[in-house]
Design a binder for these strands. Structure first.
Length: 681
RNA sequence: UGGUCUAUGGUGUAACUGGCAACACGUCUGAUUUUGGUUCAGAAGAGUCCAGGUUCGAGCCCUGGUAGACCAACCA
């Protein structure tokens, strides 16, 4: 077999290049560095899988380092949750580290910087310092304390550490370059005073290092070879390197920072701040609410570690901002659960079904397959009787030929049981169906081996026996937000897009008795409905199931009227008419539409032409003229230019040699559309 | 008005030194099916942001644009 070449992502490629250039493989070392100020989410999973995946790939250690340099936001609860989530995902870190372990070393290095005249104590207000910092387009200026003597700086810094000053009164700054084009290099702060107990060091320290000062140096202490972070830290790399330069010992390994794009998921938000807001406003019940994109939320919802790792794997790593559609995540969990979940039956919206020719009071125990995907999974007992519940949605008195379910006069199979035929209905005064009466083909029992048992009928329904069914609460979840990218709107707060119907609780669902003994981590497929798992609030007296995800449903797509979910999210219109992208110039929009012009026909062609003509109103001759030179093979663009030209001429644009030449060329072109447009002029 | 980065089907990623634009999801057919699930077979969908240039040949190299993201917390 030829070896399948797995393409490497750009980080893996970078490491391969380093190795090829002579970097010793045993020096490879990675780290995952969360701040313990919130729960891990699916975006962190990408980083976890990247770092630990690299570790597995190269047999290199991966540290878990808590970036705990800001006691005002961090808590032990989060440390514990983070550890639990990483382990649950199936990864094991080499060493559990804390930035706070390095506070003394960081302090000593800071003193060294002061002695070398590379750091100074500043006592201005934050506003004053911001003022001096300038803006991205204007350079900053030096503050009044920038040239304090080394002795004075040393004294002040020591007193900061000793707790002589109030929070916010003094900071230690690096002396770099107030005119740098990189704002971060304009004398960044190294230390500030925070009067709050730290979850590990208590009140031992009252000065705390800033991220930039702590992070690279911590990587250096741990001898991390490749320090991977998200794109927003790109600008910090220059500072990261500058700090390393100050303390670097050439006999040691020098860490490298590289950046990759954050992973966004559609219909949710992914920043700890926003997730925290959802928790604090009680929009959700907690960090592990099954609607949350947190690892703990997904776990409670029924996602498996395998599915999340698969998702990270299949999503890939790159450097461009993107929003991955949830359908990919859903694919990953369905793929996993299809192979492993035990098949059972449960009725969420029951209607009573009576089998009139089944002996009254009779009960039999049938056998149900645990998982058709796995022949070794065995069977379980399934009680049957003459009075059942079926899904209300599975019956219609009369329906078209595309409806495969129960109707009056039609046959369907009850899964793992008999073939039945609808005979009549009983209704209440309001006309609602209260009972469906039918007859069974008593020879057709599944697995009985009779000829009738293998008869083919069009539909199969799930059901439960009323006298044997157990009751349970079932929670169904819809997406938390109605907008694809709720936090991408400059003028609107993401909370405005919260889906008011994201949770649907069914207080009394009827399940087959087999489910009575379900355990917390068991995964089930309620046949024809979806995948379900026990919620942590469940008890043996009152069972609670969470719906993880529905089955793919091609019927719901065909019959949107009958089966549409309550919240059909409206996908944003893809700037069809060029209106959505207000920023894009008309001529650019015309080019975009024109490009595909030759692929269109009929109505679409006419619509495209109309769009171009409309946009052309806003185009000047100066903008259009360059397009006359468009390569001959790019017919679409030439047609678009021709249409635009027609509009311009109609508005009084005078003809000239350039225009005549373009029309001339158009008339003699091989493309009929182009010729037609040229003729119109 | 600055700096840095990014741009490939609807979505997410590939394409090694310039050589037939590939994979997965999604969508649509058809077959199989005691789950309208699964599985299997197939289809549609890209002129690689735009315009030039170099080259026998450009998604990739060069020039000039455009759009988006990030950067002025005593957050990370």
């Amino acid at each position: 077999m030829t070896e399948e070449k797995e393409s490497l992502n750009f980080i893996e490629q970078l490491i391969a290049d380093d190795l090829a250039a002579g970097f010793s493989p045993e020096k490879l070392r990675f780290r995952f560095p969360p701040e313990p100020n919130g729960y891990l989410h699916i975006g962190h999973a990408a980083s976890i899988c990247l770092n630990f995946g690299l570790g597995e790939m190269h047999n290199a250690p991966v540290n878990l380092r808590f970036d705990d340099t800001n006691p005002s936001k961090e808590e032990q609860e989060y440390v514990d949750a983070i550890k639990r989530d990483i382990q649950w995902l199936g990864f094991q870190w080499a060493t559990e580290c804390y930035s706070s372990d390095y506070f003394q070393q960081l302090y000593d290095w800071a003193v060294q910087l002061i002695k070398e005249g590379k750091a100074y104590v500043d006592q201005q207000s934050a506003e004053a310092m911001a003022e001096q910092k300038g803006t991205p387009t204007t350079p900053g200026v030096a503050g009044p304390f920038r040239d304090r003597s080394v002795e004075e700086n040393l004294d002040l810094f020591e007193r900061m550490k000793a707790g002589e000053f109030e929070q916010g009164s003094y900071v230690l700054r690096a002396k770099i370059d107030m005119a740098s084009s990189n704002m971060l290099m304009r004398d960044p702060i190294l230390y500030r005073i925070v009067r709050k107990a730290h979850h590990r060091t208590g009140t031992e320290w009252c000065i705390y290092p800033m991220y930039d000062w702590a992070h690279g140096e911590s990587d250096y202490v741990e001898q991390i070879s490749h320090s991977l972070c998200t794109l927003e830290f790109k600008m910090h790399r220059e500072l990261y390197d500058w700090f390393l330069d100050q303390i670097y010992d050439p006999t040691k390994l020098r860490p490298k920072q590289r950046e990759f794009a954050r992973r966004n998921l559609s219909y949710t938000v992914m920043s700890k701040r926003k997730l925290l807001e959802l928790v604090q406003t009680k929009t959700v019940t907690g960090w592990d609410d099954p609607r949350m994109p947190t690892i703990s939320g997904l776990r409670r919802r029924g996602y498996t570690p395998e599915s999340i790792r698969k998702f990270s794997d299949v999503s890939g790593i790159s450097k461009r901002d993107s929003v991955t559609d949830v359908s990919l995540l859903e694919f990953c969990i369905r793929e996993d659960l299809n192979k492993t979940a035990t098949r059972v039956m449960g009725v969420l919206d029951p209607v009573k079904l009576v089998i009139t020719n089944y002996p009254a009071g009779k009960t039999e125990i049938l056998s149900a397959e645990n998982n058709p995907e796995n022949p070794n999974s065995g069977t379980h007992d399934l009680p049957f009787s003459g009075e059942l519940y079926i899904e209300r949605e599975d019956f219609k008195e009369e329906a078209g030929s595309k409806f495969f379910r129960l109707t009056l006069g039609n046959e369907v199979r009850l899964k793992s049981a008999y073939i039945i035929k609808g005979e009549s209905v009983v209704k209440d005064a309001a006309g609602n169906i209260t009972e469906i009466h039918c007859t069974a083909d008593l020879d057709s029992r599944s697995g009985s081996g009779t000829e009738a048992s293998t008869r083919k009928v069009k539909g199969t329904l799930h059901w439960v026996s009323i006298q044997h069914a157990i009751k349970a609460e079932v929670r169904e979840y819809d997406r938390l937000f109605l907008d694809e990218a709720p936090d991408s709107h400059e003028d609107r707060n993401f909370m405005e897009f919260v889906n008011p119907d994201s949770l649907k609780v069914i207080k009394e669902a009827y399940l087959e008795p087999f489910l009575k003994d379900a355990n917390l981590d068991d995964k089930f497929q309620f046949q024809r409905l979806g995948y379900f798992t026990l919620d942590k609030e469940s008890s043996s007296e009152s069972l609670v199931f969470n719906k993880t995800v529905g089955l793919r449903d091609s019927w719901a797509k065909q019959a949107p009227v009958a089966a549409a979910p309550p919240n059909q999210p409206v996908k944003q219109q893809n700037n069809a008419g060029g209106q959505a992208q207000g920023q894009r110039s008309a001529i650019n929009e015309i080019q975009k539409i024109s490009k595909k012009y030759t692929n269109l026909s009929g109505d679409k062609l006419a619509a495209a032409r109309a769009d171009i003509a409309k946009l052309a109103e806003e185009v000047s001759y100066e903008e259009l003229a360059p397009l006359f030179n468009t390569a001959a093979k790019k017919v679409g663009t030439r047609i678009g230019a021709m249409i635009t030209l027609g509009v311009l001429l109609a508005h009084g644009q005078e003809r000239n040699a350039e225009i005549d030449a373009f029309i001339e060329a158009g008339l003699s072109d091989g493309n009929e559309e182009l010729v037609a447009e040229a003729k119109k002029i």
